[in-house]
Design a protein around this nucleic acid. Structure first.
Lengths: 114, 114
DNA sequence: ATACTACTTCGTTGATCGACGATATGCGTT
DNA sequence: AACGCATATCGTCGATCAACGAAGTAGTAT
């Protein structure tokens, strides 16, 4: 008998949660904003702009790369980072759907008790 | 002398990061999806749909409320939950801007070395 | 008053995160 | 070969997260 899918049966949720987690730190948002206005940023420039230790920034960049949000092209000894096209589209679609649903005026209709 | 703002001087980043963090768990995404298609959900229904312990779901609901993503209307002894209109608009705007920037073909232009 | 329901909070546990300095790695230059 | 540069990784520490069962809280019904 088929039951309603549990949490573990919705891989999309885990993927979207991972995307959201990549954005869930101010430093990573700052890095993304920098890459948005300066395509092709060098790691050292990012370290300067963010104001954290080089190893910390490197870790944040690693997290963003692992989530597929940015790409890094090696130009030894530097790495040239850029936003990955379309990487956030699934999250954009999710949030768009939630925003559309939240505008529905039928929220919180309490059942008639008479 | 004014320097480039550091991380701590961009409160928007922290707020947007907090919004993203609220979405950074599959269970919370599942709850939001449920509320999107069933406005006005009772806590007990959410517990059944998510498949976690009641106290765990309560904690996730608390996190979503604290982030302002959902609202809860008390109808004793139940609570009626719904998506908060416009709560994710700032995150939608951020992601939209990043997506627009990532489509820019000027990515990773390496400086001419001659 | 008590009993029940639904939800919130607490305490615990193990896992994960984010900061850093120190160190390792890979590449190009000399 | 050695050196320098830029980046990646490691180890550590304190903080935070997410799961649970148990206990607490608030409102309603009897």
């Amino acid at each position: 008998m088929l039951s309603e899918p549990t949490l573990a049966e919705k891989p999309d949720d885990a993927r979207l949660a991972a995307l959201a987690k990549a954005l869930a730190h101010p430093a990573r948002l700052r890095i993304l904003a920098l890459l948005a206005r300066t395509p092709g940023c060098i790691g050292g420039d990012i370290v300067q702009a963010v104001g954290l230790a080089q190893s910390t920034v490197s870790e944040h960049l690693r997290i963003l790369k692992a989530a597929g949000v940015i790409e890094g092209q090696i130009d030894p000894p530097r790495v040239c980072y850029a936003l990955a096209p379309g990487a956030l589209a699934p999250l954009a679609a999710l949030i768009g759907a939630l925003e559309a649903a939240s505008s529905d005026p039928a929220c919180c209709v309490t059942p008639d008790k008479t």
